[in-house]
């Protein structure tokens, strides 16, 4: 049958569900070992954060799409959680190999890291569901916005996350999850560009404070003169 935008989106959603069948919505045994190896065990905080962000996500999803769709929001959040745990485990395996350490206490007790990683996983899920509506401009025949309201940078607002922190996880996320489709990788790349070109330079961005601090500490190396 001919490939239509709706069929393409349905195939992508089916593929995502298949990819995540083997992943649970709880930390895997391997991930639990990484948590236990930490100086401060982050397990409880991780589970509590997932619970509270799940409630927040479903509530905001319902507000954006309609109160009858809260259940749909929960389903998407569950897929996001599976991807979040799966990517976290893969990232830690690479870090263990690269750094030859098993104690990731600082990283795994960093709330911003977890929130950014979960936001990225949810962005992948939302972009997979929103694929068909994005391509036709995001409007149904009646001119009512569909799904686009839920696409990036919506998730940053829901989780009160700065674009700068979200940006940090994108590349490692793509490296850690080789099953991501070409379209999703392109979508994440577009998010990166949007952050770099616009969002990271908004007045409330933490980037200005970081730049100021770097300047006060003195330049580490001489910058090259700008090219024409």
């Amino acid at each position: 049958p001919p490939q239509t935008p709706v069929r393409a989106a349905m195939n992508s959603i089916a593929q995502l569900r298949v990819d995540l069948t083997s992943s649970g919505d709880q930390p895997s045994a391997n991930l639990a070992v990484y948590f236990k190896n930490c100086t401060v065990d982050p397990t409880e905080e991780v589970l509590q954060r997932v619970e509270s962000l799940g409630q927040l996500f479903s509530q905001r999803f319902g507000e954006a799409v309609g109160p009858r769709c809260v259940g749909l929001g929960k389903q998407r959040f569950t897929l996001g959680i599976r991807l979040y745990y799966r990517v976290m485990e893969s990232m830690l395996k690479s870090e263990e190999k690269r750094l030859s350490v098993q104690n990731f206490s600082k990283l795994l007790n960093d709330s911003t890291f977890h929130t950014s990683l979960l936001a990225c996983a949810l962005e992948v899920v939302m972009a997979t569901y929103g694929g068909s509506t994005l391509k036709n401009g995001g409007y149904s025949n009646g001119g009512v916005p569909v799904e686009t309201d839920l696409c990036f940078p919506w998730i940053l607002d829901v989780f009160q996350l700065t674009a700068f922190d979200f940006y940090k996880v994108i590349e490692s996320f793509i490296k850690a999850e080789p099953s991501l489709s070409k379209d999703i990788v392109k979508h994440l790349e577009r998010c990166e560009h949007l952050i770099m070109e616009t969002i990271a330079w908004r007045a409330d961005s933490p980037l200005f404070e970081l730049l100021k601090r770097t300047r006060e500490e003195g330049p580490v190396e001489q910058a090259e003169p700008p090219a024409t």
């Binding site: 870090e95 750094l99 990731f104 600082k106 793509i174 392109k186």
Partner: peptide, 21 residues
Amino acid sequence: NQDYHFGLEEHEGISELFDCD
């Protein structure tokens, strides 16, 4: 993922990006 422009160096990873060594 081969179309993605990877920018991180070999010695950089998520730990460095969140300031933990």
